[in-house]
Design a binder for these strands. Structure first.
Lengths: 111, 111
DNA sequence: AAGAAGTACCTTGACAGGAGAGGTATCTTG
DNA sequence: CAAGATACCTCTCCTGTCAAGGTACTTCTT
């Protein structure tokens, strides 16, 4: 991983929720798809990912259930809830605001 | 303040360095200018600001000196160093990369 | 003259999120 | 059979933010 995680911090939940809007999914797969989408530039640390799931479930943004795999490792699937969708929408709006703000603040005027 | 600080976290140092590229400055002024530039939407908490100064100075990115105010409260001015400038350039590049990445990760494909 | 509000700095302690390091269990492949 | 992939988990530490407190001087208001 090459990009400072502090820049992603604060987007962990949004990234997970976004992924779950595309359908129920489980941790390992979510992480793999992020890795793929970023061309290997980013992926969650497992501890980060699983603590995020706990946090989101406790907040009521997602719910979970065990898959019924007949073979291979068991999978815990996550599904986004209605309030999870609401929260996602807000987070996206926040991101657009923040993005503009940061751009305004970190580029120098005189140089 | 209306925007979640977790979204700004990770940019604190960059914002300060950017400001100092425009010339030496002191904490209170820097914060006021941020407040103004964002139309009141953002400003650092004092504790955050001053710990950031300590951090940046310890890292050698900035240096500080006391102003010679004849009247009013004393001011500690900060100046960006050469390696501070280098670091700033890198941080800006990181931001552009991260911005693209986040955009890619938080927008849903199928909705 | 007293008090509030503004300027300007600082520190301590708590908290939250990220992540290193460790663990479990199953299946596939050489 | 060992190694590696799949898939989950937790404990503990680190770092950055921030609430809450403080100091000291000046200006404005009553």
């Amino acid at each position: 991983m090459s990009i400072a995680s502090d820049l992603i911090r604060g987007h962990t939940d949004t990234i997970i929720l976004a992924k779950l809007i595309g359908g129920d999914n489980y941790g390992y797969e979510i992480n793999k798809s992020i890795q793929q989408k970023t061309g290997g530039k980013y992926e969650f640390k497992e501890a980060t990912l699983y603590t995020a799931f706990r946090r989101l479930e406790q907040a009521g943004y997602i719910s979970s259930y065990w898959g019924d795999e007949q073979t291979g490792a068991r999978r815990r699937y996550y599904r986004i809830t209605d309030i999870g969708r609401d929260s996602y929408g807000e987070l996206i709006r926040d991101w657009h605001t923040a993005k503009e703000m940061i751009d305004k603040l970190i580029e120098t005027e005189d140089m």
